[in-house]
Amino acid sequence: MPAIENTYSLYINRKETRVTVSPDMPILWVLRDVIGLTGTKFGCGMAQCGACTIHLDGEAVRSCVTPVSHAVGKEIITIEGLSPEGDHPLQHAWAEVNVPQCGYCQAGQLMSAAVLLRENPEPTDQDIDDAMSGNICRCGTYLRIRKAIHLAAAIQKSKVKQS
């Protein structure tokens, strides 16, 4: 029996996109296979590693277990849309500290860190651990991630002062 497909109007990276897919298809596969936004990575497929993290109405959800039907009427932001110009304080800091090694988990790391910085603009080491411990990095870049988040917090703060 063929899977029932529905047409959904999704709001992805500030643009409306229509897709016709099964309601229980995880958003990850809609993004990667249907729309072609491959910045978001598949890691474990069971919400355990954080590689697939995207923002859904501002929350750092695991796109590998979130059905597309759950995203209707909500704003989806992927790593491609984190900052329209690619100049999010975290992106600057990531480049400055040279965080990635293999890079596979980094999109998820950045998306989780962005939620942390929005909710806590001056995080302590403990706050960073509390926010980031669900994002696994096989290369072990954790210390550089922590350093980069502190730097991003400082960049964000100076931007706020300037504006």
Binding site: E59, V115, D130, A131, G134
Partner: peptide
């Protein structure tokens, strides 16, 4: 907390 809220992984 932050990026680790229950509803980020646990569905309905």
């Amino acid at each position: 907390l932050y990026a680790l809220k229950c509803g980020n992984c646990h569905q309905s």
